[in-house]
């Protein structure tokens, strides 16, 4: 396949960025999108040019490290896949492909396509811990969990924290990410005791990290590689508003 790849190049956060255009002559439909960038980078290195910086780790769709907005869609054209699991067969010979970093005020750009998503980690930290007794494994049936709630918690726990929801949202809102993280602990009995301070803390952190509000557009759900639905956001809103109405919540810390 022959392709024209337009990539956002930016040396660092302080410098101006711009699009650079590269011709890729030797892409195979079986390559993943990142392998296509690898091939391009090898050529750039041979030519003595700075390779394109992008994030990746597992390359099997489970770590949430890869990012990129490809032709205006976070994680590219296919639904429920990450960029590393996007294959060149999703593009046509002769296509012009525009690759941009995830854009959000809360995700400062580091270099080229690499952005700093540690705001998401700080939101998780604001959620605190769960009170479980450590030591020998508890008897499996000692804590009853309904099938409905365990299934729902597992759906929420599928979130890999990639931040595509933020990248796709017109408000750069992290609501889908936070909703998934709140739900997967708050739905289970193990997360129950700290349910209220968890959701209050995480929502407060999400606002102060500079993510926008949720306008319920559904873009997040559409790009989520794990297909996490926006109904989890409503569940978080419910958790948050009821917890807030209880006002002074005495948390686990202190």
């Amino acid at each position: 396949m022959k392709l024209t790849v337009r990539v956002w190049r930016q040396k660092n956060a302080r410098r101006e960025g711009r699009f650079a255009e590269y011709e890729v002559q030797d892409a195979s439909p079986d390559m993943s999108f990142l392998e296509m960038l690898d091939v391009l980078n090898e050529r750039l290195i041979r030519q003595g040019e700075e390779p394109i910086h992008f994030d990746s780790d597992c390359r099997e769709g489970i770590c949430g490290m890869c990012s990129c907005v490809i032709n205006g869609e976070a994680h590219g054209p296919e639904s429920q896949v990450t960029t590393c699991q996007t294959y060149m067969r999703s593009f046509k010979d002769g296509d012009v492909i525009t690759v941009e970093p995830f854009r959000a005020m809360a995700f400062p750009l580091i270099k080229d396509l690499v952005v700093d998503r540690s705001a998401l980690d700080r939101i998780i930290q604001a959620g605190g811990f769960i009170s479980v007794t450590t030591g020998s494994a508890p008897e499996a049936n000692s804590i009853p969990v309904s099938k409905y709630h365990s299934d729902l918690a597992m759906d929420a726990a599928a979130c890999i924290g990639c931040g595509a929801c933020v990248a796709a949202c017109k408000n750069a809102s992290a609501n889908l990410f936070v909703a998934a993280k709140v739900a997967h602990l708050n739905l289970l009995p193990q997360g129950g005791p700290e349910k209220d301070p968890r959701v209050l803390g995480m929502v407060e952190a999400m606002t102060s990290e500079g993510f926008g509000a949720c306008s319920v557009t559904g873009s997040c759900e559409a790009v989520c590689p794990k297909g996490i639905p926006t109904s989890f956001i409503s569940r978080m809103n419910h958790n948050f508003l009821t917890a807030a109405l209880k006002l002074r919540v005495h948390g686990p810390r202190g």
């Binding site: 337009r6 956002w8 907005v69 205006g72 869609e73 976070a74 796709a168 408000n171 559409a222």
Partner: peptide
């Protein structure tokens, strides 16, 4: 909250 706008604007799922 977007910061820098996208070059390719596409309405996805909304």
């Amino acid at each position: 909250k977007r910061g820098h706008s996208y070059e390719v604007k596409k309405l996805v799922g909304a």
